[in-house]
Amino acid sequence: MVSHDIQLTDTELDIILNDLLELYGYDFTNYSKASLKRRITMLISNDRFPSFAEFRFKLRHERDYFNRFIEKVTVNVTEMFRDISFYKTLRNDIIPVLATWPMIRIWHAGCSTGEEVYSMAILLQEANLLHKSLLYATDINPAVLEKVRGGIFPLSQMKQYSENYILSGGRKDFSSYYTAKYNAAKFDSSLGKKIVLATHNLVSDSSFNEFQLIMCRNVMIYFDKPLQDRVLHLFYDSLEMLGYLALGSKESLKFTDINKHFTQHENREKIWRKIS
């Protein structure tokens, strides 16, 4: 762990959040303060700024540095088939219901580098549903969407992903889905052709379609409660009746009044169905 010479104060954080809003139109004011302070302090330390003022100056005056800020301050850690029991439930309980719709639309909100989008594409292909599906993958950060487009993930992760895949009910040879080259695993292009990419900011952008499944796992943990509530209303408005909302394993609908319109999946996985 880096010893931080500069520890961002609450006032300094507010100054930065104001700058981002005024100069770049990005509203981070309802992000988790604890997480933002930690990430920005780490950025100031890693980029070796001698003072807060110098950091602020660069952020205000260099668009490229703003792009770096977005990349470093938003968290882009994700995995394929993360949470085995969750993916088992998707495969066994949810996908068969999705199959009954003539056309399947899924929204991966805050998709980061796309590991979950490709996991979903694999599930759909194995259920012979990918041809009638569209996977909308959106993120606030345009740089990560480029990675989703490539479908290339670190080869070093494949052992773990293969294990997750098998434990969550996958029966194929996981390596049949990618070609290994140097340190990279390039996933089959047939998996990528139903993925639609777009930048979308959950804070400021509105609903853009209706979906049968919205996946937003470990994204809202970086938001405060009022913003979580607002985003959950956005998801509600973006779901078809009887559509599903899937959250991360430590997230819930307990802080929002929208929960009365949802019912949780019977096995208590973090999957809710829109019932009214």
Binding site: K33, A34, S35, R39, V75, I221, D224, G248, K250
Partner: peptide, 24 residues
């Protein structure tokens, strides 16, 4: 602390979970 998450504390004495990079 749940496995695979860091535990952060907000000013309102609320827990925020964080799944960013491992530390140590």
């Amino acid at each position: 602390a749940p496995p695979d998450y860091h535990v952060l504390i907000e000013r309102e004495q609320v827990i925020t979970l964080d799944d960013s990079e491992k530390v140590n």
